[in-house]
Design a binder for these strands. Sequence first.
DNA 1: ATACAATCTACAGCGACTGTAGGTTCAAGG
DNA 2: CCTTGAACCTACAGTCGCTGTAGATTGTAT
Lengths: 142, 142
Amino acid sequence: MFSIGTLGRRTGTKVQTIRYYEQIGLMPEPGRTDGGQRRYEDVALDRLAFIRHARELGFSLGAIRELLELSDSPERSCAQVDAVAQKQLSDVEARIARLEALRGELQRMIRECNADRVADCRILEVLRDHEKCLADHGRPDA
Amino acid sequence: MFSIGTLGRRTGTKVQTIRYYEQIGLMPEPGRTDGGQRRYEDVALDRLAFIRHARELGFSLGAIRELLELSDSPERSCAQVDAVAQKQLSDVEARIARLEALRGELQRMIRECNADRVADCRILEVLRDHEKCLADHGRPDA
DNA sequence: ATACAATCTACAGCGACTGTAGGTTCAAGG
DNA sequence: CCTTGAACCTACAGTCGCTGTAGATTGTAT
């Protein structure tokens, strides 16, 4: 039985974040002291560590919710778990691709700018005129 | 003189987004018809195109505001413009590095999971136990 | 004159937190 | 036992960059 602060310290999570996870139903409501303070058991440590680790790997809270639900039925096929992870991988790959395109464009812009004055700045010129850009960028990086 | 809808169509921007840019002071307040509808001049097209293009390159609205201000003083040195672009490039590079680490971890997780049942799923196992992870991930991808 | 698309304002919602204000409780030291 | 002060509590606002909604009004084509 330990406090929310201890739980936070042991998992590298801010107290407010733990309360937020409870609010959206990702963490179960813990017991309380007579005075109303939360008191956690060890199982909460595991669950929160799982959530934080998945977040570090970029999973959305929605995906994490799904993974937690799936892990509650250990006899089921893990195909769905694979699918969630696979989707996360595709997302990450798509973001990398997009960022690499941006990197190329930025590098080119910066490399080409040898001007002294703002008036001749190649960077601003490229930003002003889309045509001077090579790539056809989609939406701002998600 | 054209409407906000026309401006949106010509720049690929939603009407609400244009009003939002006006609200936060990125786009100047245009003239109005007697009935109160916004009417834009061609100069607004250029400014909005600049904003949208910079957004596509991942610049924050704060950075764009800075670039717009800098471009208003054409006689100044473009060192500051370079700095803004350079910072954006570093940000993009940092994000790529982080995502590449995530990609590696996800690939490994998925590759190692040959289980049928959720109970033996390697993916959940890795998520449960940080120690089974190679990388030391920082904060969730920004 | 009428129909109807486009515009207007104001505000709520997204994701995933983070920060603040103002009050209460817990645990340790005297 | 009492005090101190850190940690806790709730409730709500703010972040970023939009997006969507509701309900009213305006502009334009027929």
